[in-house]
Structures are given as structure tokens and as C-alpha cells.
């Protein structure tokens, strides 16, 4: 009986010492370093569409420097000439980084996983793809853009990531995930 009691005491002492030392570890864990800022890496802040016909060029742009922040994108639009066929090109930038990161290159590289879709209404005639991915499906970084008679028109541009390819050209059929969805109201004179 005596032996048993002393063993119990020893066990108890060990347990208490163990708990106390773990308590001390607890206290030594704080860390006062300031966290590092994160710059969003794959955000597209800016899409610039250049429409060129001879020496004329018109720029349509949407720019959202705070990304998912509360500020809405700033949209710049232009005036087009009636019954004209423009050559279109798209440039995508991430301007939260300095210097700005050119996302166009990433899209071109992963062309089989991306596609631009163009929807038009009003005074815009048609938009046709002039580029394609490795599998021969349309991509949309380059295209031709034809205006109709004078009036107003809406030009919608949607970039889908991992759409179904090939698709019937409609957003509904393509599916995927929207990376860009912007519309530009244009005046055709």
C-alpha cells in the first residue's frame, strides 16, 4: 500500500510538470511580425479592344482597378463609322501589378481553355473570329467587326474559361466560367 501511494504521487507530479511545461510553450508562441500584402495575381483589371480600319482606330476599354472591390469598372467607348469592316484585337492587363502583367499572353498560351464570345445588337452587323486555337476552334483575341447603318448598338464581350469546345457559338452551349463580361454601347455614324 505504501509503495502504491508513492507511485501515485510520482505520477501526479509528472502529470502536473508536464501540463505546466506545455502551458509555457503556449506563452512563447506569439508573433508580432506584420503580414505581407498580397497582390492579386490573375485578376484581369483591364480589357482594351482596338478596332482598326486603315488609319482610323477606335478604342473600347473597361478598367476595374480595384478588382472585386466596390468600385464599378470604368468603361470607355467610341464612335464608329457606318458600313465599315474593322480589324479587332484584344489586350488584357492586370494593372494591380507594377509593371502591368499582360494576361493576353496567358490566354493565347492556353487557347484551348479559353474563348471570347461576341454578342451584338442594333447598328453592329457582325463579328467574325480570325484566329483559332491548336484544335482549329475559334479563340477571339483577333476578329473582324462590321458596322451596319448609322444608329446605336450594343457590343457584348464575354471571355469564358474552360468552355465546351467546339460549341455552337452561343454562351448557353459553351458553358464554362466567366472571366470577363462587359458590354459597350457604341454610336455608329
Amino acid at each position: 500500500m505504501k509503495t502504491k501511494t508513492s507511485v501515485q504521487k510520482l505520477t501526479r507530479t509528472r502529470a502536473i510538470v508536464g501540463l505546466l511545461s506545455l502551458g509555457l510553450i503556449t506563452l512563447s508562441c506569439s508573433n508580432d511580425d506584420d503580414p505581407i500584402a498580397v497582390d492579386e495575381e490573375e485578376v484581369i483589371t483591364t480589357m482594351t479592344i482596338t478596332l482598326t480600319e486603315g488609319s482610323n482606330s477606335v478604342t473600347l476599354q473597361t478598367r476595374d482597378l480595384d478588382g472585386d472591390g466596390p468600385d464599378a469598372p470604368v468603361i470607355t467607348t467610341g464612335t464608329l463609322t457606318a458600313n465599315t469592316t474593322y480589324t479587332g484585337a484584344i489586350v488584357l492587363l492586370n494593372e494591380t501589378e507594377t509593371p502591368a502583367d499582360n494576361i493576353t499572353l496567358e490566354v493565347a498560351e492556353e487557347d484551348d481553355e479559353h474563348q471570347f464570345f461576341f454578342t451584338t445588337s442594333g447598328a453592329i452587323g457582325s463579328v467574325d473570329y480570325t484566329d483559332e486555337d491548336g484544335d482549329g476552334n475559334p479563340l477571339g483575341l483577333a476578329f473582324t467587326f462590321s458596322t451596319g447603318d448609322a444608329g446605336n448598338g450594343v457590343f457584348q464581350v464575354t471571355l469564358r474559361h474552360e468552355p465546351k469546345k467546339p460549341n455552337d457559338g452561343s454562351l448557353a452551349d459553351a458553358g464554362g466560367e466567366t472571366d470577363i463580361a462587359q458590354s459597350f454601347t457604341v454610336v455608329v455614324e
Partner: peptide, 8 residues
């Protein structure tokens, strides 16, 4: 809210 990706 609106972003370049559309509305959320």
C-alpha cells in the same frame, strides 16, 4: 456590385 467579370 459590378466588376469586369460581371455582376455579383
Amino acid at each position: 456590385e459590378f466588376t469586369i467579370r460581371g455582376a455579383f
